[in-house]
């Protein structure tokens, strides 16, 4: 009994000088970014990329300087000279929106980077450690999660006279890390009990390698999703605070444009060219970021993608995916007797 199987099980071993080439860097990068490769993510990334380009090339793209007043052309609806019309001072709305992109992108990403770094450190450490250290980090996270963020930011922001963008980003980041930390902690805790982590521990891998090289790569999708979500929240927070007027910014962002529009009664006077574009831009970036997150979601949880497809395929064949009984059809081929 034993000898037959033994020879069967041993596959032909190929050794020798013709070893296969190493996987190329490109292929490795490709698999690292696999979570971005579906249609939703790509669409989102394209839109986001567009805004980033606009922010970077603002000076080149804007037809006028945003502060250039023209008293002869006030409150003008869109025209050939001013594609998005003018403000109460005759400033070009399009230029203001273009220049406003920069503040939004910079603060959004900066705040998200800060928040994500904190979230990774707190979340992964809290998930890996056990006992009171983990519990107290978790309690800290929950405190930040429960304490309402916006009122806190409002009060803190009102304490400064003319805060620089970096400071605003820091405040937004410091109030927004808790959600990501919580999610990362839960996932790290579940990863920690996986056999490959135990194997690494049993092999004597140092702690920093276990966290950095064994766990972190498997957390990448979550970290990406958390980052994207934080960018959204930061941008919404920034524009909201600017609109309220709590942040007196001297650089433009879409929120301040809306602030002026509101103060000048644009909403009541139906000057839609003034208040629609900034809001639509915020929504567009929000949609782009959401799409990216949808893509990541589907990569992490393939059920979300395949569930709809499976149901549609069944419907095409006249079946309802929720039917409890599947119709049995007899076949006429003779070979199905197994």
């Amino acid at each position: 009994m034993t000898t037959d199987l033994r020879t069967e099980q041993a596959p032909q071993v190929r050794t020798g000088p013709t070893a296969p080439p190493r996987v190329t860097v490109r292929a490795r990068l490709g698999s690292a970014f696999a979570m971005f490769r579906n249609r939703k993510s790509i669409t989102g990334l394209v839109i986001l990329g567009f805004f980033v380009l606009v922010a970077a090339l603002a000076d080149v793209l804007a037809p006028y300087s945003p502060t250039q007043v023209d008293h002869t052309a006030r409150f003008e609806p869109p025209s050939a000279e001013h594609w998005l019309g003018t403000t109460h001072l005759g400033e070009d709305v399009l230029s203001q929106v273009i220049h406003g992109t920069r503040g939004v992108i910079v603060v959004g990403f900066l705040a998200a980077i800060m928040a994500t770094i904190i979230a990774i450190v707190v979340g992964v450490v809290a998930g890996y450690l056990r006992g009171w250290r983990s519990e107290s980090l978790s309690a800290l996270t929950n405190v930040f999660l429960v304490i309402p963020g916006l009122p806190l930011i409002i009060i803190v922001a009102s304490m400064f006279e003319n805060p620089p963008l970096v400071l605003i980003a820091a405040v937004l980041g410091l109030t927004g890390w808790a959600w990501g930390a919580r999610v990362l902690r839960a996932q790290t805790m579940s990863l920690r009990n996986r056999d490959f982590v135990q194997a690494a521990r049993a092999n004597g891998e140092p702690l920093w390698r276990i966290i950095g090289h064994e766990m972190l790569p498997n957390l990448m999708a979550l970290i990406a999703a958390s980052f994207v979500g934080t960018v959204t929240a930061a941008i919404l927070g920034l524009t909201t605070l600017s609109y309220i007027g709590v942040i007196p910014v001297n650089t433009y962002n879409w929120g301040t444009i809306l602030n002026w529009a509101g103060a000048q009664g644009a909403f009541r006077q139906n000057q839609w060219w003034w208040f629609l574009p900034p809001g639509l831009c915020i929504a567009a970036i929000g949609v782009a970021l959401s799409l990216i997150n949808f893509g990541i979601d589907e990569y992490v949880n393939p059920r979300l993608r395949s569930a709809g497809e499976r149901a549609r395929a069944m419907r095409k064949r006249g079946l309802d995916v929720n039917d409890p009984v599947t119709a049995v059809r007899t076949t006429t081929s003779a070979g199905d007797d197994a």
Partner: peptide
């Protein structure tokens, strides 16, 4: 560390004992 070098383990679950990323 010296001890760990002398005693090694093979785990039960082949699907879980290798890091899917590496």
């Amino acid at each position: 560390r010296a001890y760990r070098q002398k005693l090694r383990m093979v785990f039960q679950d082949p699907f879980a004992s290798l890091n899917p990323y590496h």
